[in-house]
C-alpha cells in the first residue's frame, strides 16, 4: 500500500469507527429514554410496566378538576370514556388546560394507582386534538363525540 492509500484507509476506518460509536450510543440513549403513550384503558388492563415513566393521554373529565385551595396541587380525572384514571399534579398548568379538552401528561403511577404527573401538556390551538388521544378515543369506540373533532 502506498502511504497515501494507507493514510486514506486510516481516515476511512476512523470515520467508520466514529459513526459506529455514535450510532451505538444514540441507540442506547434512545432505548433508555423513549417514553410510551398509554390511555386509561391500557393502564387499567395493566399494560404499563411497573414504575415506568410514561405519557398518559385522554380527555379531562368534565367536573373533575379540583384544586387544593391556596397550593399548587391540582387533581383531575383523565378519561377515554371507557376507563378513568386519577391524576395529581403540582405545578403551573398550561394555558389551554380545560375540562372536556384533550390533555397529555408525563409521569408515573404511585402505589395507590394514582398518576403523579410531573409535566402536563395541552396544545396551544384549541381546534387541535393530539393525534394519539384522538386515535385512542376512536379505538375506544366511544358513543360520545369528542368535544371538538380535531
Amino acid at each position: 500500500m502506498t502511504p497515501t492509500r494507507r493514510k486514506r484507509l486510516y481516515l476511512v476506518l476512523g470515520i467508520l469507527a466514529g459513526v459506529a460509536i455514535a450510532a451505538v450510543l444514540a441507540l442506547q440513549a434512545f432505548r433508555s429514554n423513549v417514553m410510551f403513550f398509554f390511555d386509561p384503558t391500557q393502564v387499567a388492563e395493566g399494560e404499563v410496566q411497573e414504575g415506568a415513566r410514561f405519557r398518559l393521554g385522554g380527555m379531562v373529565q368534565e367536573g373533575s378538576v379540583q384544586r387544593v385551595s391556596g397550593t399548587l396541587e391540582t387533581r383531575f380525572v383523565v378519561t377515554d370514556f371507557k376507563h378513568e384514571l386519577n391524576v395529581t399534579y403540582s405545578g403551573v398548568l398550561p394555558d389551554l388546560f380545560k375540562e372536556g379538552q384533550g390533555v397529555v401528561a408525563h409521569g408515573r403511577l404511585n402505589a395507590g394507582g394514582i398518576f403523579v404527573a410531573d409535566e402536563v401538556l395541552a396544545k396551544h390551538d384549541e381546534k387541535y386534538m393530539p393525534p394519539e388521544v384522538e386515535r385512542s378515543l376512536k379505538r375506544g369506540e366511544s358513543r360520545l363525540e369528542p368535544a371538538q373533532g380535531g
Partner: peptide
C-alpha cells in the same frame, strides 16, 4: 410497536 415519544432525555 406502540405510541412512543422521544424528548430531551434522548
Amino acid at each position: 410497536l406502540g405510541t412512543i415519544s422521544v424528548g430531551a432525555p434522548y
